[in-house]
């Protein structure tokens, strides 16, 4: 016997959670672009999407957020800090690759210090992931050692029933179990089977890639220029990546009064590494693309023993010139070490 949640009961679940003061978010279409938004009714969800255009990371690491306000007077400097609220929320219907991305970034945001902006939001949120029945041409979780039903980063895993009428419910964390309490009466015990998960082909040999990347001789390889010649440095691949986490700190206002904000930034941009002197250590687009790959599959991996990529495929899916991690790693895995 497993716990089953029927789709027909979903709206009732949302009400039960809301009654407890919990916000409910899920995949929705927002004017031609899909992402995560607050929902009242299950009808608002778009659960047929293979993957939302925008990632889960925006819920924990928004594209812009105020950190503090300052005002400098003759006698004193006043600052006040903005911190995210601890208002609980449930994210219903994340995908395994996105959920895994959050677990990967936990490492980063808790490395040399604990990033309160990230962790306040992480701690207050419960991620209910739905295993994938379908994939598209760009999905590559299996190439990254994950799967369409990976549990990494999720608090609850839902497996779609063959009948299409609901999900098997698997509790993964204490936080997840707690979130099920208010809806306990809506969960049924049953033996209904789960549908098979999507078949996602393995596209490259990750071992071979990381070995090649780890070889310092390849750092200056001509390969980098060839593979990234068409990159226009638009940053799309980083902004839509669930694990890319670079940000910039900006003061808005003037010398005396203003707000300090944390804004997304991207290693694809020329300005990212530009020094005030005018010197730019990564002065070509190929050096910037190499950084993106090296960071994900070498530096990050060395430091945290996990690659900073979940194989969601967005970097290829959304690139205006059809580049992406996939092509690069496929090419690398065929190169001599």
């Amino acid at each position: 016997m497993t716990k089953i949640l029927y789709s027909d009961d979903l709206t009732a679940c949302f009400s039960a959670w809301r009654k407890e003061g919990t916000k409910v978010l899920g995949p929705v279409q927002q004017a031609k672009t899909s992402g995560f938004g607050e929902v009242q009714d299950a009808k608002e969800l778009d659960l047929d999407l293979v993957l939302t255009d925008r990632t889960l990371k925006e819920l924990f690491f928004p594209r812009t957020e105020p950190m503090l306000s300052y005002s400098i007077g003759k006698q004193q400097i006043d600052t006040s800090e903005f911190l995210p609220s601890e208002h609980p929320c449930i994210i219903f219907g994340a995908r395994p690759c996105d959920a895994a991305g959050m677990a990967i970034d936990d490492e980063l945001f808790n490395w040399d210090y604990r990033d309160e902006y990230w962790f306040r939001r992480r701690d207050r949120s419960v991620i209910m992931t739905i295993a994938c029945k379908e994939s598209d041409d760009f999905c590559m979780c299996t190439s990254l050692g994950l799967a369409p039903d990976s549990a990494k980063g999720s608090d609850i895993l839902l497996r779609p029933l063959t009948s299409g009428k609901g999900w098997q419910v698997e509790e993964l964390t204490p936080k997840g179990s707690k979130a099920l309490l208010p809806i306990a009466s809506l969960l049924k015990e049953g033996t209904e089977e789960a549908a098979p998960t999507a078949e996602v082909p393995v596209l490259f040999d990750l071992e071979a890639c990381t070995t090649w990347l780890a070889n310092p001789e390849n750092f200056e390889s001509h390969f980098w220029k060839e593979i990234s010649e068409r990159c226009i440095g638009c940053g799309t691949c980083t902004y839509l990546c669930p694990t890319c986490h670079c940000f910039d700190i900006q003061d808005e206002g003037d010398t005396y009064e203003g707000i300090r904000r944390k804004n997304w930034d991207s290693c694809s941009f020329q300005l990212f590494t530009m020094h005030t002197s005018g010197h730019n250590p990564r002065n070509t687009q190929s050096a910037r693309w190499r950084q993106r790959i090296m960071h994900k599959f070498n530096y990050f991996s060395d430091k945290f023993s996990v690659h900073s990529c979940t194989g969601c495929g967005r970097c290829t899916r959304e690139c205006p010139v059809d580049m992406g991690v996939r092509e690069t790693l496929q090419a690398i895995s065929t190169l001599p070490k």
């Binding site: 927002q30 004017a31 672009t33 594209r63 226009i232 638009c234 940053g235 799309t236 902004y239 804004n263």
Partner: peptide
Amino acid sequence: SRCIKCYACRAA
């Protein structure tokens, strides 16, 4: 309101 300031429009 959806703009994420990636400047992809400019790059393209």
